[in-house]
């Protein structure tokens, strides 16, 4: 197991009060595997990524355990984390237009990772940067290296971001909506590139997206998040063919299908509850058409419904197991490991 995330909770201070953004999120990533995290805006998927990298705002409270290659990195000091970031674990962000420093050349920005984490000489670094640019499919690398981000197109900039993230051959690559800001043809190229890099390096990838098309394209396994909690996890084909959680079903129904003319796309009524007003029971209960009495009061636990397929929903909960009515966020520590 490359990455093991266990019961990670995150609270951020907003207007003087802590509110819980992530609630006991657990999942894992294997070498050479792409794990998708999907969910709508504000479900905590980006915050999950930033928690892994520990790139959080000043007043953040992070609990739980994060292990990277069996190292408990959640206990690392900030200084020790700096050695992990960009080295064993690196990250690609959503908007390549704003994620590159406008005043530094492309080469300098890629080189910085090498400067920080390797002992290569100046010439060796330059050679490596040119190789990286070639690896991510950029032409005329030896000129590009001295150009500035504003001279490049969006797709090229995202390739630069990928080259930057790949500089130190990370074991884990976290991609936060890497294709959202790009146009569709470029999206496909970038996804293909990431698949290719994964095959070549056997790194693990976390792909954060709200685009189920992207999930289908690159992911091996999917984690569905809702309101700061994991609600379903399954291999990608299984999830698309056989979604269990009513929220996941809703997501699937909202995908337009080619050749099928529908009156209206499926949508999920209602809105996501805010972190300040989380319901006592299942967080999706208010929007769920199949909600039962138990859903309003008791938090469902992750339950195995099939091999490698788990969901947190009372519809599938083993009726024999009695749960504490006021469970709330104080669930047993093994919640996701049934």
């Amino acid at each position: 197991m490359l990455l093991d995330v266990k019961d990670v909770s995150l609270s951020l201070k907003r207007e003087g009060k802590y509110s819980k953004i992530l609630d006991q999120v657990s999942f894992h990533v294997n070498n050479g595997e792409t794990v998708g995290i999907v969910g709508e805006s504000g479900c905590g998927k980006s915050m999950t990524a930033l928690s892994l990298m520990r790139l959080l705002p000043d007043k953040a409270k992070l609990d739980g355990e994060i292990r990277l290659e069996d190292e408990l990195i959640s206990s690392y000091s900030n200084r020790k984390m700096q050695k992990i970031r960009g080295n064993q674990a690196s990250m690609i962000f959503q908007d390549p237009l704003t994620s590159l420093n406008p005043l530094h050349t492309v080469g300098k920005q890629i080189e910085e990772s090498l400067l920080l984490h390797t002992s290569l000489s100046k010439q060796e670094r330059r050679k490596r940067v040119i190789k990286l640019l070639n690896d991510v499919g950029l032409p005329r690398a030896d000129e590009l290296i001295d150009e500035y981000p504003h001279q490049l197109s969006g797709g090229m900039r995202q390739r630069i971001m990928i080259a930057m993230a790949m500089a130190c051959e990370p074991k884990l690559l976290i991609c936060d909506e890497p294709t959202t800001a790009l146009d569709v043809t470029v999206q496909a190229q970038i996804l293909e590139l990431m698949n290719e890099l994964k095959e070549r390096t056997r790194m693990g990838i976390i792909m954060i997206t709200h685009d189920l098309g992207v999930v289908a394209e690159v992911c091996d396994r999917v984690i569905v998040m809702y309101a700061g909690k994991v609600v379903e996890t399954a291999p990608v084909e299984e999830l698309f063919e056989n979604p269990k959680h009513p929220y996941t079903k809703g997501l699937m129904q909202s995908i337009p299908k080619l050749g099928i003319r529908k009156q209206m796309l499926g949508s999920i009524a209602g809105t996501v509850p805010s972190p300040e007003n989380m319901p006592a029971g299942c967080r999706f209960a208010d929007r769920c058409s199949q909600a039962m009495d138990v859903c309003k009061t008791n938090v469902p636990q992750m339950t195995q419904v099939k091999k490698n397929h788990k969901t947190a929903c009372w519809l599938y909960e083993n009726k024999g197991v009695k749960k504490d009515a006021a469970a709330g966020s104080e669930q047993p520590k093994t919640a996701f490991y049934l």
Partner: peptide, 21 residues
């Protein structure tokens, strides 16, 4: 800015991010 977060994600120290970027 996003590029400051990028610099942090690269593993730059606080001072490096502050004065270098």
């Amino acid at each position: 800015s996003d590029y400051i977060r990028t610099a942090q994600a690269k593993g730059g120290s606080e001072n490096r991010v502050l004065y270098g970027h």
